[in-house]
Simulated assay, not measured.
Amino acid sequence: MFSIHMKKQLAHFPLEISFEADREIVVLFGPSGSGKTTVLNCIAGLSHPDAGSITLNGVCFFDGKSRPVAPRRRNIGYLFQDYALFPHMTVEKNIRYGMKGGSSAHVDQLVEVLGIGHLLGKYPQQISGGEKQRVALARALATEPQMLLLDEPLSALDRKTRLQCQEELLRLHRDWNIPYVIVTHDLEEAKKLGDAIYFIERGQIVDTFIKRPVSANI
């Protein structure tokens, strides 16, 4: 179970977001600059709210009183918009980066499921956008996270590759059964992926679309 109830003053408006989810795919939809990525960064621990609380599976990451839990201790996978792959590392080293030992069998399974075994010895600049997306997803999942955050991960892909990657994300969600929080400004993508869609404008949830029960406080 995941819950976030946060307030944070941004440059031009206050960000006030509150919702809860179990193992659904939650989509934060809205125009650029509305505060969506800041919400992801607060969940990941890369930024902190001014007030509120963030909890996952009974563990409080932030409550405004005690010291926030460090990002490395939150066990959250984060797929950045630009994928953030290390150019000097091979695909295999990128995937294994951040793992604390970990199971080789687990990584081998991810590589097989995502169909990237032939890329392991290559470098990021030698592979396509769709391949980079799969490698970044494998790296995010290699740590066996309790939750996955995705910041417009498909925005740079052509339509065909984008549709294929959307199907991949849905399939992996069925296999992993963990909550996703996805940021996008593509309404078609939001409707395809999201069990719950929160429409955000200038830091506020202004509308909600729910496919199946998800708790929200707007």
Rank of each mutant, 00 (worst) to 15 (best):
L79P: 01
G33M: 10
Y83W: 10
G35N: 11
A84I: 03
V69A: 00
A84K: 02
N75D: 15
V69T: 13
R74W: 02
A70K: 01
L56D: 05
C42A: 08
N75L: 13
N57S: 14
A51V: 02
K36L: 09
V39W: 06
R67C: 07
D63W: 15
I54N: 07
P31S: 06
K36Y: 07
T55E: 15
S66D: 09
L46F: 15
F61G: 04
P49K: 01
Y78C: 03
R67V: 13
G30E: 02
F80C: 12
L40F: 00
V59C: 06
A51C: 03
F61T: 04
H48L: 13
L56H: 10
L85K: 07
L46K: 07
S47V: 07
S66C: 08
A44M: 11
G45R: 03
V39Y: 06
T37F: 14
L85H: 08
G64P: 00
L85S: 09
C60A: 07
G30D: 02
G35F: 12
G33W: 00
S47N: 09
V39L: 06
A44P: 04
A70M: 13
L79K: 01
A84Y: 01
A84L: 08
R67L: 05
R73F: 12
A51S: 12
A70T: 13
K65L: 15
P71I: 09
G64W: 08
